[in-house]
Design a binder for these strands. Sequence first.
DNA 1: GTTAGCATGTAAGGAGTTACATGATTTT
DNA 2: AAAATCATGTAACTCCTTACATGCTAAC
Lengths: 216, 216
Amino acid sequence: MSRRHGVMTLAVLGLLHESPMHGYELRKRLNSMLGAFRAFSYGTLYPCLKELLGNGWIVESDPVQAAPTATATPPALSGRRARIVYQLTAEGKEHFQSLLSESGPTAWEDEQFSVHFAFFARTDAETRLRILEGRRTRLQERLDGVRQSMARTRERLDSYTLELQRHGQESVEREVHWLEGLIEDERQARQGTTTRGGDDDAPSARGRTAASTEDN
Amino acid sequence: MSRRHGVMTLAVLGLLHESPMHGYELRKRLNSMLGAFRAFSYGTLYPCLKELLGNGWIVESDPVQAAPTATATPPALSGRRARIVYQLTAEGKEHFQSLLSESGPTAWEDEQFSVHFAFFARTDAETRLRILEGRRTRLQERLDGVRQSMARTRERLDSYTLELQRHGQESVEREVHWLEGLIEDERQARQGTTTRGGDDDAPSARGRTAASTEDN
DNA sequence: GTTAGCATGTAAGGAGTTACATGATTTT
DNA sequence: AAAATCATGTAACTCCTTACATGCTAAC
């Protein structure tokens, strides 16, 4: 028991790590963080929060009611509906870190990768590198599969199917290229901090951000 | 009852449309067709076949046992395990066409789009255009969301989160660009066949295939 | 002789969605 | 006065995966 709600758990713990929040806001931030990749509905969020509560990873904090435009609103229950603000417990933080340090397929598969990546600033350098490399290898395998299949079925496919394969292949190739840049950055950042085994905060990816936009 | 197994139903019917096949081969062809986008397991395939059978959309045909390397293998049950070869019925073909002519969100959302696209050669021109445009609009909305979110939270994000957003945005932009090329092709192909309302086979996407690789 | 590939299936469960229910508040 | 947005939640259901069970044949 405990490993339910795959991606959401990690994402929610990560966001609450920054600051306490209520459900509605949590979901908005979640979907803006991962906007291009996926979206969650309330039907996933609220049950997930319930479970996190049950596991003692989060607690309800004072329902701090942010002033509803006009500031001076009397005590008790005014300004909108009473919001339930959640915050991380010590165990929650610990669990978050242990989730972050997982570097198996669970971290680099399609749905999970983007969330893990989003919290790389809190992930130690070794794990970051292993996840990036794991994903690159995974995509490379997929590419091999696609290339073989295109070689085998050559000419026998209609133009739409062919175009789909071509487009799919190109997308995967692009992501591999992106990953390779990131991996190189990680390696170079490691040179800077010599043999240190420590975890520190974001190495501000200089160079790469520019490099990957070069062909604008 | 009847609308189960979302994407698979369409994909299986589509493949069986080309030629009869047994489950194992079906799955291989499925995964090679959609290799870059998704993969199915047997746990999805076999129950799906069962349901298609129940709906009368496919039937078992003679277990044509392809010669196992050496040709002359005696009658009955030789050469590997008895394979169950399925083929499309008339109702199956009809149902397949009706699935193909759906052009709502069910056709242009992430998981479904690639399968629908793969069978565009059997889809009529109007539907193709509506699906392509629907998806483009959908992605455009997603882009607007991402851009707004990036404008709002500017500077307050660590470099990894930022890089993720940038990469996500770029991917979506690329797909929009790809779609726009395809849409233009469809429109030009329509000019060729003047006012005709008919469905014909693949307009061999000339020009486009080259154009989208131009920046090689 | 053992691994890899061919071939078919089932049971249990995980992750998430849709649609509903409810109600306040702000904007148009 | 209507519509959008804020806010929380639940029940039912979908789609798919994992892990298991079984056994045969080809290649190393």
